[in-house]
Design a protein around this nucleic acid. Structure first.
Lengths: 220, 220
DNA sequence: CCCGAATTGTCAGCGAACTGTCAGCTTCGT
DNA sequence: ACGAAGCTGACAGTTCGCTGACAATTCGGG
């Protein structure tokens, strides 16, 4: 889960970032509208937290432009001015939810989760790769139709490979994405997880490209 | 099955309309209280979805007027402001159910179906899961035919798992849905309720997927 | 208004599952 | 054939979830 935080007040940005991190998101923060426009236009996020009072490019304008471009990520608006008409305006412009400041962090994380769930519920979440069927919504995996029990870490790793199944993913990249920005594990940790995954999914499920990294196996 | 959707936000109205259509309803949408009052007064519906924040005629007033006229269709209230007192007020005014925004469309359709069934006098609200029979209308549970006494909290938790029985529900999601947006409990509170439920329903009734969450046991 | 019972949140200890590390082995590319 | 990269089994530290006990809160009745 990747979240973009668009907020010029550094204190609030930090608050939001730590709250979302605790809720399982990986967060990136930008402080002005121009940068946000660029980031949101080129990267894919699962959630965007958008402050309306921004320097250089107004939040509402930014929102409309993104939607005009067909960007579909869920957007949650933060605003100091909590009037009803402004809320309606935000929703009409394509926001998915609206939270007036000041807010409780619990409420923020609760709504963030709800948004992501809602967005996820509307897309097809079953992906087939060889003999595997991976349901990212129910968080289940079957192999030749039989359910396979994965641990959370294994599932996260598999999901990331699935998300990038068209290319080879370097171990260092896996380290970055599977774990938060926490303290560093030895690179070998990834290999251990790969081994455990292969034991459960079959040897051909994940292929190694020596010197580069891993990718989902195209065939058994 | 004919449903009237009273909602001024076009995006939400569309969402609700498509969800109900998929659930087998014929839908009509109106965007303000006056028109709704006319439609609901002259036509017969099997279900009305009512937004409280309406232009021209407030939702609650509309509801009371309809009931005062003897209109008996089931009414499901949608509201952004999810306070408990408001919910009580809506129910007292004659609403049959209440759903706070943001909501999941699955939950909406599930409740809509339940309302219609209830109104039709078909007591088809008994769900069977393994040895359990759960009556969401009379709020009773039997295990192998013998009644089981659940506390309100236990029943709410069980109901939510029942509503989402096809997937694994994260503890944090349970926290969000079982309790209002009230002050935060420790996550451990959920575990305590689960333990008490298992003692009453049998160990296999609720299964744990470590690291992911809970789901209703498919079999003993 | 007070008392007792039922309900429900919190805490601490325990056991099991998860996962990082290490050491030795295998495999691959040159 | 050799070295580096990757694999894997074993092991141990840590986390996660379960549960019994207790406390706080709610609710109903007298």
């Amino acid at each position: 889960m990747r979240a973009l935080i668009v907020e010029d007040d550094a204190r609030i940005a930090d608050l939001v970032a730590s709250a979302l991190s605790a809720a399982g998101f990986r967060t990136e923060t930008v402080g002005d509208g121009d940068t946000a426009w660029f980031q949101g236009g080129t990267e894919d996020y699962d959630l965007v937290i958008l402050d309306l009072g921004l320097p250089r490019l107004d939040g509402l304008t930014l929102l409309k432009r993104w939607r005009g471009e067909g960007r579909a990520f869920p957007i949650l608006i933060l605003s100091a001015r909590g009037t009803w008409s402004e809320r309606v305006e935000g929703i009409e412009a394509g926001a998915d939810d609206y939270l007036p400041k000041p807010f409780m962090v619990e409420e923020l994380t609760a709504r963030a989760r709800a948004l992501v769930r809602r967005a996820a519920g509307q897309v097809q979440t079953v992906h087939r790769v060889g003999a595997l069927a991976i349901d990212t919504n129910r968080m289940t995996v079957t192999r030749d139709g039989l359910p396979v029990a994965l641990t959370p870490l294994e599932f996260r790793l598999l999901s990331y490979l699935l998300l990038n199944r068209d290319r080879t993913v370097a171990p260092s990249e896996l380290l970055d994405h599977i774990y938060g920005t926490e303290d560093g594990r030895e690179a070998n940790a990834i290999e251990a997880v790969i081994t455990r995954l292969r034991r459960k999914l079959g040897a051909g499920a994940i292929e190694t490209r020596r010197g580069f990294g891993y990718r989902l196996g195209t065939d058994p």
